[in-house]
Simulated assay, not measured.
Amino acid sequence: MNAYPFDMNVIETKLSKRDRILEAAAAILCQDGFAGASIDAVATRANVSRQTIYNHVGDKEGLFKAVIKELAERSTEHFFEMLEEFPDIDNSDDSLQSGLSAFGTRILYHMTHDKTARWLMRLVQNEGERYPELLSGWREYGPGRKNPALAAKFASLAHAGVIRREDPTLTARQFMALLTAEWRPETQLGHLPDEETCRAMAERGVRAFVAAYAIK
């Protein structure tokens, strides 16, 4: 599987220079890693000069931080769009299972097929341990905003008596862990599940969540 979702020798010129730089850098960083990426390679792919990159984002460290921040902001924006469709759920097990399964399917399919989500996940997985100081933008604009928003949804379910009252942040994390339990190893091996497979994975993950959290 390619390190990025599509091949391109030069980023489309209809994008602004900054956007072309960030798109090119994301692709190259995913392919070569922070250590292997170069300003020259990004400049060539984005069809700009080295000096243009320095003017917009600075050196390679600044470029990496800018890419992470941009991808995290895009990913968070998409997540909040999906969160607007968080289901209305009553006290029946069927409603909890079906509603969260539909929501979970959208999340898994998006994480699989959206280039922003794939790039961001790959960079965090590959570079997070080696360069944690470069991922401050991801922590601030990604989990820092997503986790509280999702936790609030589960807090509402607990307040309505649909699920057990637990720490809502922990509940949200466990929901995501169960949702991605099958999906994560598949994608790490290079497999891209289609929508039906994402639905089946979501249903099984949600079933485990319902078994643990639903009020009987």
Rank of each mutant, 00 (worst) to 15 (best):
A158W: 01
E182K: 15
E140G: 02
E203S: 11
A25V: 01
T180E: 15
L22V: 04
A155S: 11
G161H: 07
G99F: 10
I11L: 08
R164G: 02
D94Y: 06
T197F: 00
Y131P: 07
L123G: 13
A26L: 00
I21G: 13
K69T: 15
F34R: 08
E133G: 13
H159W: 00
L63K: 06
C30M: 05
E133L: 00
M176E: 12
S101H: 06
M82C: 01
T76I: 03
A41D: 15
A155E: 12
A151K: 10
I21Y: 01
S136L: 09
T169V: 06
G36Q: 06
T197Y: 00
E12C: 05
R45V: 02
A200S: 08
A151R: 04
E196T: 13
R207M: 05
S92Q: 07
G137E: 06
V124Y: 13
A202C: 10
L100C: 04
E61L: 04
F86G: 11
R20Y: 02
L22E: 13
P87S: 12
R204A: 09
P143V: 03
E129M: 03
G144C: 03
A177N: 14
M201Q: 14
V162E: 01
H78G: 09
R165M: 09
I107G: 01
V42W: 11
Q97W: 05
H113A: 00
A117V: 02
K115R: 15
L189P: 03
V124C: 15
N55E: 07
H110R: 09
N9Y: 09
L120F: 11
A3V: 08
V124R: 14
F175H: 13
F80Y: 13
T76M: 07
N91H: 07
L170G: 03
F175C: 07
D93Q: 12
T52N: 12
S92L: 00
F6H: 15
S156G: 12
A26V: 03
F103P: 09
R164F: 00
E140A: 13
A200C: 01
I215M: 11
G205H: 12
R173M: 11
M82E: 05
G142I: 08
A41T: 13
A149H: 09
M201F: 13
L71A: 01
L178G: 08
S38Y: 02
R106M: 03
K153F: 02
L178R: 14
W183R: 12
A27H: 11
H56I: 02
Y213C: 02
R139K: 09
A66L: 00
R74M: 08
W138L: 05
K216T: 11
L170S: 10
R145M: 15
I68E: 08
V48I: 08
Y54K: 07
N91R: 13
P168S: 06
F34K: 05
A72V: 03
D167N: 15
N47Y: 04
A102L: 02
R106F: 00
P193W: 04
H56C: 07
E203K: 12
R207I: 00
F34C: 03
L108K: 04
L96D: 08
E12M: 02
Q31D: 15
L29Q: 14
